[in-house]
Amino acid sequence: MPPLMTGAIVNAVALGILYGLLGLSLTIIYGAMRIANLAHGEMVLAGSYVAYVVTTQLGYSPLAAIPVAFTLLFLLAFALFAVAGRRLQTARDPEMASFLFFYGVSLMVGSGLLFLFDADARSVIFQFQPISYRVLGLVIPKARAVAVGVALVLVPALFLFLYRTTPGKALRAAVMNRDALRIVGVDVERLSLVAFSVSAGIAGVTGVLLALVFPAFTPFSGLDYTITGFVVIVLGGLGSPLGALLGGMLFAFSEQLTTLWIGQSAGVLAGFLILVLVVAIRPAGLIGQAEWKS
C-alpha cells in the first residue's frame, strides 16, 4: 500500500473515532430525549478552549484539561437543564422548542467565547515527549495518538454504560417509549438531567481531543461541529450508539479518501454526498431502528 494511502487511512480512523464520539454524545441526548441540541458544537468548542487555556496559557498537559472540560460542561448543562429542561420536554412541539432554545444557547456560548478569546484562531501548543511515533514507516504525532487513545477508552466505557448498566438501559428504553418507562418506575426527568449533563461533559472532552487533532479553532467553529455531529448520527441512525460510531467512521473515511484522491474541497463534498446517498437508500440511517428491535 502506498504510504499516502496508509496515512489517509490512519487519519480516517483517528478522525472517525472522534466523529463517532461527537455523534455518540449527541445521539444520547437526541435519542433519549428527542431534544435537538443545536448547541452541541459550541459545547465541544468550549472543551477545545478549555484545552487551550490549560495547555497554551497555563502550560499543563492536555490530559489535565480532560477532567476540567468534563466538569465545566457537566455543570453548565446541569444548570441549563435545570432551568429549561422540563419546559422543553412538556412543550407542545418539543423538537421545535428545543431547536430554538439551543440555537439561542449556541449563539450565547459562541459570543461568550468570542468575547473571552477574540476572533483569532487558537491552537493547543504543547510539546509531548516524544513528539511523534514511528510505526511501520508512518510518522504519527503523539498528540493524535493520545487523542485516539482517550477516545478508545471512552467509547467502550460509554457502550458498557449504555448496554450493561441499568441507567444505560433505561436511557435506551427512553428512546422507544418514555411513558412506558415512567410506568415501570423510572424517574425520566432525573434520567434526562443526568444524561444531558453527562453527554455535555463528553462533548467537552471531545472538544479537548479535537483540539489535539485539528490545527486550530475559532469561536465560529461550533456550527461545523454541530453539523458534523448531526450528519454522523443521521448517517448511522438516530438514537443508535453503534450507528453513531459507524457514521463517524464512514464520514471520516469518505472525507479523507476523497481529499487524497481528488482534493480538499471535494473532501467536504464527499462526506455530505455519502450522507445523501445513504439516506436515499436507507431512510432510517445505516442501522437505525433495526438495532433496537433485535
Partner: peptide
C-alpha cells in the same frame, strides 16, 4: 420529502453545503 423530522432537516442542510461546494468547484 420522503424523510421526516431531523432526517429531513439534516439532509436538506447537507444538500445546501453540497450545492455550495459544487458552485465553488
Amino acid at each position: 420529502l420522503r424523510l421526516r423530522g431531523v432526517f429531513f432537516s439534516v439532509v436538506s442542510l447537507s444538500l445546501a453545503i453540497v450545492l455550495r461546494s459544487v458552485i465553488v468547484l
